[in-house]
Amino acid sequence: MSIVILASLLGIGLILLLAEVLFIPGTTVVGILGLVISLAGVIYAFSIYSAETAWWITGIAAILNLAAVIYGFRSGVWDKFSLKSAIKGGTFDGRTLGLEAGMKGKAISDIKPIGKASFEDSIYEVKSESGFIPVESEITIIKVENNKIIVK
């Protein structure tokens, strides 16, 4: 009966440690619980077996737990959780190229203080310097900075 209890404690501890490394990384609760249960199995081994046998059981349990952690890190599970792409945009991505101060356009929505305007058959988001500008009004670009188009 004691061998069943010992095997159960060590087995459950190993399974929980593997679950932590392979299936639910980052929580650490399951991993710590697995280590505690494995440690309880080792303590149980020292209480019922001779010291030499208990040290053998401790060594085997430590090797299995370490092998489980190493396998978890080398199995590629972490690749599923890592970001593979990168953001390529920046503060200036060229969408306002060709626009310059003094260009005339037309408000295609109410600009209060942000709205849509058309310049040379292209639609842009603009910001009003002077507050509300009604739809269909003629507008003029005052300045273009960091993808922001300021109009009046």
Rank of each mutant, 00 (worst) to 15 (best):
M1A: 10
M1V: 11
S2R: 09
I5W: 15
L6S: 02
A7Y: 04
L9S: 14
L10C: 09
G13F: 14
L14A: 05
L17E: 05
L17P: 02
E20M: 05
L22R: 07
I24F: 14
P25F: 00
P25Q: 01
L35D: 07
V36K: 08
I37R: 00
L39P: 12
L39F: 15
G41C: 06
Y44F: 14
A45K: 14
A45G: 11
S47V: 05
I48F: 08
E52D: 10
E52Q: 10
T53L: 04
W56H: 10
W56R: 13
W56N: 14
I57R: 04
A62Q: 06
I63C: 11
A67I: 09
V69I: 13
V69C: 00
G72A: 03
F73N: 12
R74H: 08
G76H: 04
G76Q: 08
W78V: 07
S82A: 07
L83P: 09
S85I: 03
K88R: 12
K88N: 05
K88T: 09
F92R: 10
F92D: 09
D93Y: 00
R95Y: 12
R95F: 14
R95K: 15
T96C: 13
L97E: 12
L99M: 06
L99Q: 11
E100A: 10
E100D: 05
G102H: 15
M103I: 09
K106P: 04
A107C: 11
I108D: 07
I108E: 06
S109H: 12
I111P: 02
I111Q: 09
G115E: 04
S118T: 08
I123C: 03
Y124F: 15
Y124S: 06
K127G: 05
S128K: 12
S130W: 05
G131E: 00
G131V: 05
F132L: 14
V135Y: 02
E136N: 14
I139D: 02
I139P: 00
I139G: 02
T140E: 15
I141G: 10
N147T: 14
K148I: 09
K148L: 10
I149H: 13
V151L: 02
